[in-house]
Design a protein around this nucleic acid. Structure first.
Lengths: 233, 233
DNA sequence: TGTTATAACATTGTATACAATATTGTATTT
DNA sequence: AAATACAATATTGTATACAATGTTATAACA
């Protein structure tokens, strides 16, 4: 509750272990769209990139798989997840459920310090957008939502939402058509409504906000595959 | 959707790998209360018990940790999770949220085959209860709920609920005071209401059902620790 | 007796070696 | 040229060895 958010990945875990660091970097790389869906994650290559043995790489990949951000196929390896349109809609539905519950808990109960933090995160997101760095903006948008869930104070909500947010990023990468960046005002308005304890408005704003994600997607779009090279840049 | 449930753990994953099997056995052992909260899970001991190297044990433990069923402490090892009363209440709250959403999806849309399966699972639970095997009954109760979520057809709900159900089992182990076995009729009545498409009744029955879990708990109870020996019996 | 320092031990953390499986390329056949 | 069989290669799966850390027992001291 005290420090500013570092990474969406296990943001409430302060511990630092080598495999956790690798996990976080891969996680962020996927969220920032530097690793495309379906990208094969070769263990040996990653081991070289990160300068560790395959043991630690495998730990990180297994953690990512547990969050459904990567998929592991027996004897074939790990791939960045690529939810199909059916699953994508289910993910967005589930996310709305959790986010609404978060709103109910957070509305009117945010400390001024928390509001300040959330305000800052909105600014950071906008800053990334100004730089034209949509990947970072997307990640920071997710961090805003997650920080809000932390403020709501229900740990399982945070845990579940973390997975859903990261999968939402994958969905936007796969099916998004740009124009998902109306977020600044939406986040800002939401924060105001929450601060004022206006539950009806808060719920409506969050619902619209998530609705825009869905609206901004073309679920017929065909998906392109990526490769590991982007990690080296 | 076609086969009968095997284990609450990764019930939708058909693959069989050594570490998955170990994971499932540990998972069920915890759910059936044969491994008490806070029990230290020594890697070497488990490796001997399961006749494999520590490598596979670690994989299983990490998977369990991802589902919050065990907790891993750096350089100290893995322990069966022991949610405190605050977290326990949050878990039950989150579970109610998801279960209600499942009800909304499943109500009136269950196939006769699914109803049959659920009916069977209720019977199996009762059978375990008749044998006095409350551990198995508890696990089967969880399987009933999870099977229902599968029938609802939203994959993230299933995934999230799996974690919440297993944690509920831990909560019952820690804070339950017996008397949690009114489940048979409750499951039965719920199934009838769902079958008939009676949403209001379905929601009310589920809410009461989960409420009983909470009612049956004394959150002031002090918790006893266990040890690995129970796995050998 | 109680406390601290230290050594012996046990356990987890990581790298590496080898086995099992999958993938790719080449040759052979039609 | 297309398809198949098979060898060569690459990749993942598992066990083991060693390093790093934590725990416990012992001994010295107050």
């Amino acid at each position: 509750m005290e420090t500013t958010a570092v990474s969406l990945a296990t943001s409430n875990i302060r511990e630092s272990t080598p495999s956790l660091d690798i996990y976080r970097q891969l996680f962020d790389s996927i969220l920032e769209q530097r690793l495309a869906p379906n990208t094969k994650l070769n263990e040996q290559d990653l081991a070289i990139v990160f300068g560790v043995s395959r043991t630690l790489i495998r730990q990180a990949l297994q953690r990512l798989a547990a969050e459904q951000v990567v998929v592991m196929q027996k004897n074939r390896g790990a791939f960045v997840a690529a939810p199909d349109s059916v699953l994508a809609k289910q993910i967005l539905e589930a996310r709305e459920l959790i986010e609404m519950a978060v709103i109910d808990l957070a509305c009117g109960s945010l400390t001024s310090q928390t509001v300040q933090q959330l305000q800052l995160m909105i600014d950071m997101e906008q800053q990334a957008l100004d730089f034209g760095d949509t990947g970072t903006a997307l990640r920071r948008s997710g961090e805003f939502h997650l920080r809000l869930a932390e403020a709501a104070g229900n740990q399982p909500y945070v845990h579940m939402l973390r997975g859903l947010i990261s999968q939402t990023s994958l969905i936007i990468t796969m099916y998004g058509q740009g124009g998902n960046s109306c977020a600044r005002d939406e986040h800002l308005n939401l924060l105001r409504a929450l601060q004022q304890g206006d539950l009806a408005s808060s719920r409506r704003l969050m619902s619209h906000h998530l609705g825009h994600v869905r609206t901004g997607c073309d679920f017929n779009r065909r998906v392109v595959n990526g490769n590991l090279a982007t990690l080296l840049s």
